[in-house]
């Protein structure tokens, strides 16, 4: 066997073991990724596309991720970055064309339930603000971690979250026992 042939066989073995390792990680983590993706995008279809794009990026970069302990954090960053690039490609007026919240004159009390009203509210947030809310209240990330992920200042994270909460209070009244 030539030197080149030996190198090719070694590469194939590395690829095969890397594939198996990636496949194992993917099976374990794709559920968590799609849940976050669903909250970010508001649509099952868009979430699937986002997760597939994220996993593809990770697959292509797998050999370069030397620290396997941080793959989850790497994957989350890739997911958020992919989502950001998607929303940046689309003009803000176009975003809602593909995923419009039905515009109807209805009060929050007309929703089936409080959680559904909150979800409707989250879906109507601009993409970056929605990302802040999902990362803060679903992923439980700190303001500094969110700022780092989204490439914005912690002050912006704080103001986006507080404005969203203020709007939420306005739109979804607290339950009687909380007043």
């Amino acid at each position: 066997m030539t030197v080149q042939g030996v190198r090719m066989r070694a590469r194939e073995r590395t690829d095969a073991s890397g594939d198996a390792e990636f496949g194992e990680w993917m099976s374990a983590r794709q559920g968590a990724l799609v849940r976050t993706a669903y909250l970010l995008t508001g649509s099952q279809h868009a979430a699937e596309d986002l997760v597939q794009a994220t996993l593809t990026k990770l697959y292509l970069a797998w050999d370069r991720i030397s620290d396997r302990q941080h793959v989850d954090a790497y994957a989350r960053r890739a997911l958020v970055n992919e989502h950001r690039s998607t929303w940046r490609r689309a003009h803000r007026r176009l975003e809602v064309l593909s995923d419009a919240v039905p515009e109807a004159p209805q009060a929050a009390s007309e929703y089936d339930g409080e959680r559904e009203a909150v979800w409707q509210f989250v879906q109507g947030l601009p993409p970056r603000q929605r990302a802040v809310i999902v990362l803060r209240y679903y992923e439980d990330l700190s303001e500094a971690e969110i700022a780092d992920l989204l490439g914005i200042s912690t002050g912006t994270v704080k103001s986006q979250a507080s404005r969203a909460l203020a709007s939420l209070r306005d739109r979804v009244p607290a339950r009687e026992e909380d007043r």
């Binding site: 909150v118 809310i133 999902v134 209240y137 909460l165």
Partner: peptide, 18 residues
């Protein structure tokens, strides 16, 4: 409302699958 957000997002997230 923060707790409400956490609950609503956690509940909604379970609807997604891939």
């Amino acid at each position: 409302h923060e707790q409400l957000l956490r609950e609503a997002l956690a509940a909604k997230a379970t609807e997604a699958s891939v």
